[in-house]
Design a protein around this nucleic acid. Structure first.
Lengths: 213, 213
DNA sequence: AATTTCTGTGAAGTAAATTTATCATCTTTC
DNA sequence: GAAAGATGATAAATTTACTTCACAGAAATT
């Protein structure tokens, strides 16, 4: 069962939402401002936070990046009364997963919540642990360099890669390309050009986010 | 020099923007709808796309996900006249990096553009290639499992880890913990509890994003 | 104080990954 | 159609990663 934290200074709305969410099959708890929310998040595990943007004490806009940074997998839906395009854009830039304007139809909110949770569907660690080939592949600098090359040049032929890697023995490159192909990080088109597969692109994007932050 | 593609059906605005952007030190080109934009992106490399949301032919909302999926590293700033909160949220959810409402002050737009490009600043591949220890670490399933365990339990002692991994020879676990520690993915506090380091947390978050999408 | 559990080291052996070397085929190009 | 370069398979040699074993001090239990 998914756990949702409702953060709003309006007690009526808070209690109401908790009731509705409970009725909709969620576990729901609530907090009256950003500080209390962060406390609750520290002790209890939640899947999603409904966050009011303006509250006495710490507001949603302030607590949003704090929460997102610490609990990156928790989905956050901003709930706001005085909504502007700028505010929405800022919230999304800060890491909100969705943004709902008050007053809202409760059904719309439920749809939004379900969609966010669906996106969060987390292959936990079981799948992560099965990515043995992928990680073994990435363990080698030559192969990572090859991926980087293909990221930059889109398509390359065997000897292009060999030369760009500055490796004189082409059979060594051949070995690594095979490993990469077996791990499905790259593929060859009809003309034998090597290119990143979808999986490969995803990995590269991810790796860049590791090293850049 | 950064290359920017202006996509708008209004010829005046298009030419104007290209001129201003060129004056501001960018290379700028333009396209009059989504289809033409996608064509231009296929032949030429761009760093950022200014995308009008409503155009005859393929609009920005339609082309946005197509562009983002194919060229994940290109930043996209939506430019829109009839702007609503819902529209802004939808655009951001679809992968826009920012959202500007027409009419805009040219200076505000430049600020937005520069910020987006700054964020895109790509540690290229040099840094990525130096992460040898990190990747070698992740190449081993036992070590990944250890990271996953620590992600879940925050702090664990040596024998806790050994038992949870269901490994009878504790010295084997010791070996892997040492490798993880050397790669700075985890650390020990004064009481010898093992926990994820900042780097380790970042890596784990990243790995989850690989497997979940 | 004696005993068990926890935490760790280092050497030596085993397994796996990588490199090197040898050879085969397939395309272009002349 | 022969020569030259591009591509790739396979096996042996080497390097690196991993496991096992023997041992030992610290901390907790009895």
């Amino acid at each position: 069962m998914h756990k949702i934290l409702v953060v709003d200074d309006d007690q009526d709305l808070r209690e109401n939402l908790v009731e509705v969410l409970t009725g909709a099959g969620f576990f729901a708890d609530s907090a009256e401002d950003g500080n209390r929310a962060i406390e609750k998040l520290a002790t209890d595990k939640f899947d999603l936070v409904l966050l009011d943007s303006i509250m006495p004490g710490m507001g949603g806009m302030e607590s949003l990046p704090l929460i997102k940074r610490k609990y990156s997998k928790i989905k956050i839906v901003m709930l706001t009364a005085f909504s502007t395009v700028e505010g929405a854009v800022e919230a999304m830039r800060k890491g909100a997963d969705d943004y709902v304007t008050k007053p809202f139809k409760i059904n719309d909110l439920l749809v939004t919540i379900r969609r966010c949770l669906e996106e969060a569907k987390f292959v936990a660690c079981s799948e992560l642990l099965n990515m043995d080939d992928t990680f073994k592949c990435l363990a080698n600098a030559t192969r990572r360099k090859t991926l980087a090359l293909l990221k930059e040049h889109d398509k390359l032929r065997f000897m292009d890669i060999t030369r760009k890697l500055d490796i004189d023995d082409h059979t060594k490159v051949n070995f690594h390309l095979k490993v990469l192909k077996d791990a499905a990080l790259l593929e060859q088109d009809g003309r034998k050009y090597y290119q990143l597969s979808t999986k490969g692109k995803k990995i590269i994007a991810c790796l860049n986010s590791i090293s850049s932050t």
